[in-house]
C-alpha cells in the first residue's frame, strides 16, 4: 500500500476509535442520568484522558499527512474534515464529563419533577451523535442530513426543561441548586447535539465538497 493510503487509513481508524469512545461516553452520561448509575459516570471520567490523548494523536497524524503528502481533492477534504471532527468529538467528550459531574451531584438528591425527561432529550442527542458518526464511517451525506434536521427538536426540549426549572425555582426556593444542575445538564446535552450537527455538516463537505453551514446567513 502506498504511504498516502497507509496514512489516510491510520487517520481514519484513529478517528473512528475516538468517535466510538466519545459515543460511549455520551451514552454512559445519559444512562448515569436516567438510571442514576454511578459506575457509568465514573467510566466517563476515566475515559476522558484517552479521548484527550486521541485528540492530540489525530491532530498529529493529520498535520504530518498534510506536510508529507500535500493531499488534494477528496483526500484533502477528508483530512480537513478529520481535523474539524476531532475538535467536535473532544468537546463532546468534555460535555459528557460535565454531564456526569452534575448527574453525580443530582443522584444524591431527591429527583425533581420533569414533564420532558432526560430520557427523551438524551436519546435524541445520542442518536444524533451515532448517526453523524455512522455518516462519517459510511461517507453518507444523505444520512448526515438527517442529523441536521434533528437539531431543532433538541433545542425545543432543552428550552422546555429550562422553562420548567425556572418555574420550579420560583415556586420552591429549596429546589434551586438541583434545578440549576438540571438546566446545566440540558444545556450540555444541547451542546453535544450542536457538535453532532457540526460533524454532520463536515461529513457533507467531505463527501460532496459543499459547505452547508450557516445557510441562513445574509448574502
Amino acid at each position: 500500500m502506498r504511504q498516502l493510503e497507509e496514512e489516510l487509513k491510520t487517520l481514519n481508524e484513529t478517528l473512528q476509535e475516538m468517535g466510538s469512545l466519545v459515543a460511549q461516553s455520551i451514552h454512559r452520561s445519559v444512562m448515569s442520568l436516567v438510571e442514576k448509575n454511578e459506575d457509568y459516570a465514573h467510566q466517563v471520567l476515566r475515559d476522558e484522558a484517552r479521548i484527550n490523548q486521541l485528540e492530540m494523536q489525530i491532530d498529529d497524524l493529520a498535520t504530518t499527512l498534510i506536510a508529507r503528502e500535500a493531499p488534494v481533492a477528496s483526500d484533502m477534504r477528508f483530512v480537513v474534515t478529520a481535523i474539524k471532527i476531532n475538535t467536535d468529538l473532544e468537546r463532546m467528550g468534555d460535555m459528557a464529563v460535565g454531564i456526569v459531574e452534575r448527574s453525580l451531584a443530582a443522584m444524591r438528591q431527591p429527583e425533581l419533577p420533569l414533564e420532558v425527561g432526560f430520557t427523551e432529550i438524551g436519546n435524541l442527542v445520542e442518536s444524533m451523535v451515532l448517526t453523524s458518526l455512522d455518516a462519517f464511517v459510511k461517507r453518507d451525506a444523505q444520512l448526515a442530513r438527517t442529523v441536521l434536521a434533528a437539531d431543532d427538536a433538541v433545542d425545543k426540549l432543552r428550552n422546555t426543561i429550562t422553562k420548567q426549572m425556572i418555574e420550579l425555582m420560583k415556586r420552591d426556593p429549596t429546589s434551586v441548586e438541583r434545578a440549576l444542575d438540571y438546566i446545566l445538564i440540558a444545556r450540555r446535552l444541547e451542546r453535544v447535539a450542536d457538535h453532532a450537527t457540526n460533524v454532520a455538516e463536515d461529513v457533507i463537505f467531505m463527501v460532496k465538497g459543499i459547505d452547508v453551514r450557516h445557510r441562513n446567513l445574509p448574502e
Partner: peptide, 11 residues
C-alpha cells in the same frame, strides 16, 4: 480541480 473535481479520472 484540486478541491472537488467533477470527473473521477481527474480525482
Amino acid at each position: 480541480i484540486f478541491k472537488n473535481p467533477s470527473r473521477k479520472e481527474t480525482e
